[in-house]
């Protein structure tokens, strides 16, 4: 009887562990971007989270000259929500901070904070989660950087998974 109880308990524990691991794995597979580094609070953003924020859109042509409308949140707002030193705080040594954007393929680009801060510039840079109203496909998302009026576009990083604010050395 005792053996049966132990066996039952072990089975229940195994099942519970299996489901808890499945949950962890499922969470790990949700595409998202982390906002970290010189921030007051680290954030994890999913494409659904971005839909709940004020949206902005930018149209641009792809390499086959097809025009697409990308929509998402202004990068400045994302950083503001994470408590990055922008606007009145963006002075002195804070002007030596930069944003490192990293994609899942290892691609990296940087922006100075002043390039992103709407208090400094009227040029929009967005963290796009949608293209022509549809969530970005896996080969472009979860997020793509879109820069208004950028003549050459290698900084329009695809598959963005992290935004890290750092001090220049």
């Amino acid at each position: 009887m005792k053996t049966t109880k132990i066996a039952l308990l072990t089975s229940l524990l195994t099942i519970a562990l299996f489901f808890s691991n499945s949950k962890v794995n499922a969470q790990a597979k949700t595409a998202s971007a982390s906002i970290k580094g010189e921030v007051k609070s680290e954030l994890i953003l999913t494409p659904t989270d971005v839909d709940k924020l004020p949206k902005t859109s930018i149209s641009q042509k792809d390499r086959t000259d097809q025009e697409h409308t990308y929509s998402g949140v202004e990068l400045g707002l994302v950083l503001k929500n994470a408590g990055v030193t922008l606007a009145e705080e963006l002075k002195g040594e804070n002007l030596t901070k930069y944003l490192l954007v990293e994609a899942s393929d290892g691609y990296q680009v940087i922006f100075s904070l002043a390039e992103i801060d709407p208090a400094f510039t009227s040029r929009k840079i967005i963290l796009a989660n949608r293209k022509d109203d549809k969530l970005l496909a896996a080969d472009e998302g979860p997020f793509r950087i879109i820069i208004e009026g950028e003549k050459r576009k290698p900084r329009n990083a695809r598959q963005v998974i992290s935004l890290t604010v750092k001090f220049a050395n």
């Binding site: 794995n25 790990a28 597979k29 595409a31 899942s104 393929d105 896996a138 080969d139 598959q159």
Partner: peptide, 10 residues
């Protein structure tokens, strides 16, 4: 390592 389908065969 990542569990992401977009990293398949990378």
């Amino acid at each position: 390592i990542t569990g992401m389908d977009s990293d398949h065969g990378r």
